[in-house]
Design a protein around this nucleic acid. Structure first.
Length: 519
RNA sequence: GCCGCCUUCGUCUAGUGGCUUAGGACGCAAGAUUCUCAUUCUUGUAACACCGGUUCGACUCCGGUAGGCGGCGCCA
């Protein structure tokens, strides 16, 4: 057969990620997508995205959208799909019902599947009974031997039914690229439901059909699918589909070593994006959950992963999702990225915190915000003064190395945008300084700083003027701590000179005055 | 209950019979730099689940035990 010939000579690597839009793209899913993507790219193959939306009840377009956006954000782009305005859309199973119907009919016609009219209540009762007797719950096969006439009659009477696949009660074995040789005794399994009707296939069937139709060579998925695999192999055999290779990835676990889920905290990729994690950090982190190159290198970009990744080096055991390590990696990537890039990414957090707002030319302009462009001008909401992109960049430049995630930026830098700082006067105290010492120190600072001409206002100049003075006191902290505290209102912050430079002479003097007035 | 998968520092892991006083990273602790925080650097901390067997030799091979997890849907 022509079809067989084509398949047997197919040596192109083709993989797919097949999420169902019943929830946001979560960490576990995105790692499966990532591994598929890396494997495909490394082998010059194709990575396909297939949305498994056959469950009408639970599928939501909102989730569909989230999955697409999150994958795009991570840099996992699919290679193929229906044309949507010049781009590849993902495949969606709901658009492929004709295909499934064809095969369901074939299964029925060949006697590999049959209509089952058992009620859900009966089935549930049976399941409970079997469980109580310590048996594996398994369908009895009651409807398998219904006569053609009985089936016809039930169908005409619109008696509720499903379509079951006749599970061949034999031993099924297959080789898993990660787990090795696996064998299952299918006599332990009853006949499984594969469709609710001719145009409503279930995952177990639709997946097999699509993998065949899309000429998938390797099925790479979570190892929670291992028990489904022998069933799908049997369906493939019944439909005379060629075999595919399997690679079952270990799960990502929560702190308690159970499958990562919502009760372990944030699991949605979009949630991590919102918290200010960089996609490159998330990718680098996720790929090391269950894989490593066997060398001591730990930092990998997507491109270097494509070169180095290998399925054979994937771990068999599950890995706990450990945020501490993600934070470390994220901090690393924030430090790595350019100032321009980190500033651009931080601006939404300033806006969300109500520190600044973009200055638009007209009232109609705002809708365009959030698109691609970076606006150059902003207004500080509390003080009303203009803040340029350049100023924002300066702020980011002194906080970039302190960030673990971008969302921390607003809390760290709020004092740049405030009119008046609110703090207790004890904050100004360095070690055992007395109140009068603090006051003198602050007033002294005020005097030195006021003598610096506006046009000579720079960090370097502030340092050369203030540092000698601070040295004279024997303990630099006696000068520098009150200065920094007065400017920032914080226990911990960036250095006083760099903060002062950005704040400007006027504000620095004002804050020093406000500080000394506390005594 | 049945079926299956898994088991090296707290966490992610290297390790494919002698190279191993089990290596790296995160975390944690201490120190250096420093007004603070962060960065950076140095040092330290800490593991082969258990019991048998094979072998001159076992983290590595085999068997068993225990524990953990997953599946057993008209979800995917």
């Amino acid at each position: 057969m022509a079809e067989d010939f084509k398949l047997s000579t197919q040596n192109e690597i083709r993989v797919r990620y097949a999420p169902s839009p019943t929830g946001f793209l979560h960490i576990g899913g995105s790692r499966v997508a990532l591994f598929n993507y890396l494997f495909a790219k490394q082998n010059n193959g194709k990575y396909i995205l297939r949305i498994e939306d056959t469950d009408i009840e639970r599928s939501k377009s909102e989730y569909d959208k989230d999955i697409l956006e999150s994958l795009k954000w991570l840099g996992i782009h699919h290679d193929e799909g229906p044309d949507v305005g010049g781009n590849f859309g993902p495949y969606r199973q709901r658009e492929r019902l004709d295909i499934y119907e064809k095969y369901i009919k074939k299964l029925l016609a060949d006697g590999n599947a049959y209509y089952c009219f058992c009620t859900e209540e009966d089935l549930e009762a049976q399941r409970q009974y079997q469980l109580s007797r310590g048996e594996a719950p398994k369908y009895s096969g009651k409807c398998k031997n219904l006569s053609k006439e009985e089936v016809e009659e039930n169908l005409i009477n619109k008696k509720p039914c499903v379509i079951r696949f006749k599970v061949n009660p034999k031993k099924v074995d297959f080789k898993d690229i990660i787990k090795g040789d696996l064998e299952f005794d299918m006599s332990l399994s009853g006949d499984i439901v594969i469709a609710k009707n001719l145009r409503y296939p279930l995952f177990i069937l639709a997946g097999v059909i699509d993998d065949y139709e899309m000429k998938i060579s390797h099925v790479i998925r979570g190892d929670d699918h291992i028990p489904n695999t022998p069933k799908q192999i049997l369906i493939q055999e019944a439909l005379e589909f060629p075999k595919v290779q399997y690679a079952h990835l270990p799960m990502i676990l929560g702190q308690d070593r159970s499958k990562l889920s919502k009760r372990h905290g944030a699991t949605a990729v979009s949630e991590y994006k919102k918290q200010g994690y960089l996609p490159e950090a998330l990718v680098n982190f996720m790929v090391f959950l269950g894989w490593n190159p066997g060398t001591e290198r730990e930092i990998y970009s997507m491109n270097s992963l494509i070169k180095e990744f290998s399925l054979e080096k994937v771990q068999k055991a599950g890995a706990i999702f450990n945020t501490k390590r993600l934070d470390f990696l994220n901090g690393f990537y924030i430090r790595e990225r350019s100032l321009e890039k980190i500033t651009e990414l931080s601006i939404p957090y300033f806006i969300d915190a109500n520190f600044i707002q973009p200055i638009f030319k007209t009232e109609q302009y705002p809708p365009a915000y959030g698109a691609k462009e970076i606006l150059l001008r902003y207004k500080a909401i509390e003080t009303g003064e203009e803040i340029t992109l350049e100023t924002l960049q300066k702020i980011i430049s002194i906080y970039k190395e302190r960030l673990k995630k971008l969302s921390e930026i607003s809390e760290l830098t709020d004092f740049f945008f405030k009119e008046k700082l609110d703090y207790d006067k004890n904050l100004l105290k360095w070690k055992e300084m007395s109140d009068s010492e603090i006051k003198i120190s602050l007033e002294n600072l005020e005097k030195i700083i006021s003598e610096i001409p506006q046009e000579e206002w720079s960090r370097e100049n502030l340092e050369t003027k203030i540092l000698p003075e601070a040295e004279r006191a024997g303990d630099r902290g006696k000068t520098l701590w009150p200065l920094r505290a007065a400017l920032t209102g914080k226990q911990a912050s960036a250095g006083p000179f760099e903060v002062a430079e950005i704040l400007g002479k006027e504000k620095v003097l004002k804050r020093l005055k406000e500080a000394s007035e506390k005594f």
